[in-house]
Amino acid sequence: MQHAKSESDVTSLAPSSPSRSPKRHVYYVQSPSRDSQDGDKSSVQPSPMESPSHHSFGRHSRNSSASRFSGILPSAGRKGRKRNDKGWPECDVIMEEGKYDEFDDDKKFTRRCQAAMAVVGFILLFTVFCLIIWGAGRPFKAEVAVKSLSVSNFYIGSGADSSGVPTNMLNFNGSLKLSIYNPATFYGIHVSSMPVNLVYSEFVVATGELKKYFQPRKSRRTVFVHIEGTKVPLYGAGSTLQVGSNNAVQVPLMLNFTVQSRGDVVGKLVRTKHRKRISCPLKIDSTSNKIIEFNKNSCDFS
């Protein structure tokens, strides 16, 4: 026996007919509110509906919701920051990559400046040191004393020069004795001389030269200079010579020379140089060869 379908049964079965769409289920996505700083408040947004009769719409809805959900996550990450133990919000560390050539160039430039300043400072200090040493060694001048002139041969006679002009001729041969003292306490000296000249009436009648030598500090040394002149023409100057009773001739002469000394204080970088000009007047008797002594007042030093 079949029962007649009631109106309520027909109504309950109506939604299952294929001509009508099934009941749509509604779901919600919860995301943090933009106005909340702590991430506690959230907003509810309805998701798009899917319809069996429009398949493309369903796929589009799923893609749209997925993209919308993924777009919400960064916002939630920015707004809903985590907090540390002290209650301060944690910040993400941003790693920045870039070239540091500018900083390297600054460091290289700074190092070069420091090296240049160090070199300049060393040069200045060394220069000041050299000046101090030079000033300390400057007062130490070589002391020269003329002791004697030993005459081996002295002769004046008539003759002729190289061109045949008749005139008085002079020959001289002797040795000059000098005493040189180096008062420097911390360096030796190199001693030499300019030509040692024996002059008669502005004519150089004999000459010699002190050979260069080295003299240690705080030392005294006696040196000899050989002076010689052979057949030196006197021309008109010979007429003024004084002749003695025994035909002896008194010849006034002048001994002129310069002694040079050089001290190497700091190698060749710092040197001290001194010159001493010496002039000694004397008279020589042409008939007797003897030693002429000198004292402190016999010569002029400058």
Rank of each mutant, 00 (worst) to 15 (best):
D106R: 09
N297H: 09
S152T: 12
K82M: 06
K147R: 15
N63V: 15
F122M: 13
Q37K: 08
P89Q: 04
L13Q: 13
W88S: 14
F154M: 03
N247S: 12
H25D: 09
Y181P: 00
M95K: 14
A4V: 15
G244W: 02
N168F: 12
P46F: 03
Q45R: 06
K86S: 10
A4Y: 10
S239V: 13
K212A: 13
S193V: 04
S298Y: 00
P46I: 08
I72P: 02
L282D: 05
S245W: 05
C299A: 04
H54Q: 12
H190G: 12
S51W: 12
S36T: 08
V29I: 11
K276A: 01
V266H: 04
V146R: 09
W134Y: 15
V191W: 08
A115P: 01
G238D: 02
G80Q: 03
E7V: 13
K141C: 06
H190F: 14
S175T: 15
F301K: 07
K108Q: 06
L241E: 02
G263H: 05
Q250H: 10
K212F: 04
L253T: 03
I292M: 07
E202H: 10
V251W: 07
V191F: 06
I292Q: 06
P32F: 05
G58H: 00
M254C: 05
K23G: 01
I123S: 10
G236A: 13
S12K: 11
K273R: 10
R112H: 08
P195Y: 00
A14F: 12
R220P: 04
M117Q: 12
R78H: 10
Q45V: 10
R68N: 11
F301N: 00
H274K: 06
L282C: 04
Q30K: 09
N246A: 00
I180T: 06
A136Q: 14
A116G: 07
S64V: 12
E209N: 15
E50Y: 09
D161E: 04
A136R: 14
H55D: 09
H190K: 15
T110G: 07
P166D: 09
L210F: 00
H274L: 06
K107G: 05
E293N: 13
P89W: 01
Q260C: 05
I132C: 12
A14M: 10
R24S: 11
C130R: 02
V223L: 04
